[in-house]
Structure formats: structure tokens, C-alpha cells
Design a binder for these strands. Structure first.
Lengths: 228, 228
DNA sequence: GAGTGGTCTAGACCACGTT
DNA sequence: ACGTGGTCTAGACCACTCC
């Protein structure tokens, strides 16, 4: 015998899909299921917890466990270091620093960082190359407080890679959208005028404080893959 | 006392961020940690399993647990039913069916569905409206085997919503990209010629077999938000 | 108040993969 | 071969929340 929690999960999933338990309906308690299926309640708990995390069940103490009425498709994807993403496609990687200077950020960025007037941020612009062709154009604002003395040489290591391996992050936001290439971006990325570019805007935080905000413009043809 | 697994996770996270355990370094075994921190090994296991799922640790039997060398940013987002997504923004929702017919799919789709020649799929095209303005143009191929008799009326309920609440899914793929609007899409979405559109291509499977493949073109201005 | 899920414990066995 | 993580068990207590 020896039923594992994955077996229990499979059985519960089967009953949901067979509409043995209808959407919105209450399913038996963990204890009842553990008796029926012949395993410990802990094992049932593990299985139901997993299905709830996947969005198929809704659980509340005392109220019990229900089959989700509107099963949410919850997708996940990994955002690797840009260098590894490119090398993972079998291409060679290079980073070209376009600009590095201290500057007053625009109002929107300043309010995000809650930075004081007169305390400039670090402005970084650069280009990630795959097989020596432009792949991603990056515009970044960075809180200089996270930099050590002496500061890293961003001509040798991209801000992306340096940050990932030197500054512990605790969370952040990402927004994906599409944008037509501006004349300057056409120039930098070598794409057609007005080409549709995949845009990723990311704010990374550590301990509740924004560390860096970055705008990543991907050359035409970029695809972001995720699993359901 | 009564340390919970979240306390253990917090302590381990603290040591990683304080570089008490360097990236790539081996950390103590579950048993050693449980003794040091004064809890059961199960509790340590739960904490380390969670950190591994978040991409901060790498675990292998016998080899032990290491601090990830290149912490992967693992992002998650929910893909709700289109109607709920639009209504959630406080806008009114409507769906307009443009086309519904049986047809032989193009080769790429046919091979995906492993469908036999002479067994046509259902071709659906429609427009999701937010506040009576075009929001998402949808082109879909659907395996008619999943439809009941009589078939649902897709003029009243969008294929998206009907599928989510009637056909259990077990997995799938999503690919996001950016595309310039074609003349036909300009016409349907009422956008500028060549506008950059956010494109979502999704294949949904049940029990390892593709059920539906859909191409969703979002009107300009669409943003997909995710959490790190 | 009482029912249900959330978690902890201590011990045990097993699977895997490095050595 | 053997060390490490993966999991199961049985029992217990607690937290939340519905009634």
C-alpha cells in the first residue's frame, strides 16, 4: 500500500474533474478523507494544501474545503540572470555599458524611492548582446547606498548580474507590456522603426525599500514562456 | 517557545542574507539545524523546502543543501477569467462572437493536437469588450470532443469562461510576446496601424492532451502585473 | 462553543545519488 | 555503502471562524 501525498492529490483531482464534487461544493474533512483513503491526516493535508496553492481548492478553518468556483490559472516563470538566459540559448553573451552617472531622477522614480531632493540616484544604461547582436536595452535607476567602496565596474559585470549575486532582495513588482520602438531605441536595438518591443518594468525591493527600478526593452522576437 | 516553520525559514533567510552562509556553500543538515534551533526535523524540512521552492536553496539527496549560486527570481501571476479581470477594473464586460465554424487547422495546430486529417477542430474568433471598447481579440482552436450535446452558445458565454468552469485543465503553456497590429487587427481592435500589441499564446491541456489553443491580442495599454 | 484546518513532535522507513 | 533529504504515521495542541 503506502499511499503517498501525490497519490492522494491525484485521487482528489480525479474526483474534481469527474465532477464527483461539483464546483463550489464542500468536500469531506481531512479526517474523513484520511479514514476513507487509508492514510494519515497529515498526508491528506499535504495533498489538499498543494491543490489549494494551485488554485483548485479554497480552504478556510471551520468552513471546510470547497472546490474553487472560478479556478484561477496560476502561472509561474523564472527570471534568470540575463547572461544565463542568453547563454542558455547557446548564444554568446556580452554587456555594453552606454552610460553611468549620478542624476536626479524624474518625479515618478523619485517618489518611488522616497529619495530626498539633492540625493541623486545612479543612472545606468546598457545593452545586453547575444551573439554580438542587440538583445535587451536596459535603463536603470539604482540607489547608490547599496554599492560598496569601491563601486563595482559595470563595464565588466552588468548591473543585473552584480545585483543578483550581491544584494539580497526580498520582493518586488514586474509589469509586462508592449511598446513601439522610439527612434532612439531603433538606433540602439537595430530594429525596424516602430517595431513592437516586449517591455519589462521591474522594481526590486530589499526589506521594504526599493533598491533599483529597471526598464528592459527586448529586441523583436523575444518570447517569455511560463507554465500553468 | 514553539518555533514555527516560518520562524525557521526567517532565521535561515537571515543567515543567507547576512552571508553567514555564502552563495554556493553547503549549509548544515536538517538534523543538525533541528538540534541547533530546537525543533523537530520535520519543521526544518518544511522551512527549507519552502526556500528551495522560492529558488534560494538547492537541495539534493545525499549531496545536501546549498545556498543557490544564482538566485532565480521566480515570479507568479494569476490569470483570471477575462470577464472577471475586466470587471475587476470596474469596467463593464461584454463578449462579441465574430466567427464559429468547423475547420481544418493549419499544420502547426494540427500537429499540436495530434488530430487526424478529416477530423476538423472548432474555430472560434471573438472580441472581449471593456466599457464597450475593444479590449482583447481572441482566436481559438478547440477540440470539439470536450463539448457536450447540445453545445454551449458562445454568443452568450465566452469560450474562455465556459471552458474554465466546465472543462478541468491539468496544465499548459503560455508564451508572451509583442506584435505589431496587422491591418485586420487594427480594424477589429480599433487601434493605430502597426500599434504594439501584447500577445498571449496559450495551450491548455487536460490529462496530457491539448484541449484548446488560443491567441489573445490585447489592445494597446494592456499591462500584465506579477509579483516577485 | 465547537468544528475544521494549520502545525508540531518523535520516530521510522525509504529513495536517491554521491562516494 | 552510506549519508541526506523525502515522506508517512499517530497523536496532540492551537488558531481561526462560523454559528
Amino acid at each position: 500500500m503506502a499511499l503517498g501525498w501525490e497519490d492522494i492529490r491525484a485521487e482528489v483531482l480525479r474526483r474534481i474533474e469527474a465532477r464527483h464534487w461539483a464546483p463550489g461544493a464542500l468536500i469531506p474533512t481531512e479526517e474523513a478523507l484520511s479514514e476513507e483513503l487509508g492514510c494519515a491526516r497529515t498526508t491528506v493535508n499535504r495533498a489538499l494544501r498543494d491543490l489549494a496553492a494551485a488554485g483548485l481548492l479554497e480552504r478556510r478553518r471551520k468552513a471546510g474545503t470547497r472546490v474553487a468556483l472560478h479556478p484561477v490559472r496560476r502561472a509561474r516563470f523564472d527570471i534568470p540572470v540575463t547572461r544565463l538566459e542568453i547563454e542558455g540559448r547557446g548564444q554568446s553573451y556580452a554587456f555594453h555599458l552606454i552610460e553611468e552617472r549620478r542624476a536626479e531622477p524624474p518625479a515618478a522614480v523619485a517618489s518611488l524611492f522616497r529619495s530626498l531632493p539633492g540625493a541623486p540616484l545612479l543612472r545606468l544604461r546598457g545593452l545586453h548582446l547575444a551573439d554580438n547582436r542587440p538583445a535587451i536595452y536596459e535603463e536603470r535607476w539604482l540607489d547608490p547606498a547599496v554599492l560598496p567602496e569601491p563601486a563595482p565596474d559595470f563595464r565588466r559585470i552588468s548591473p543585473n548580474e552584480w545585483l543578483v549575486s550581491h544584494v539580497p532582495w526580498t520582493g518586488g513588482d514586474i509589469v509586462f507590456s508592449a511598446a513601439n520602438a522610439s527612434p532612439e531605441e531603433v538606433d540602439i536595438l537595430g530594429c525596424a522603426p516602430g517595431a513592437a518591443l516586449f517591455l519589462c518594468e521591474r522594481v526590486t525591493e530589499a526589506e521594504g525599500r526599493p533598491i533599483t527600478s529597471v526598464r528592459l526593452l527586448h529586441a523583436p522576437g523575444y518570447r517569455l514562456r511560463a507554465d500553468l
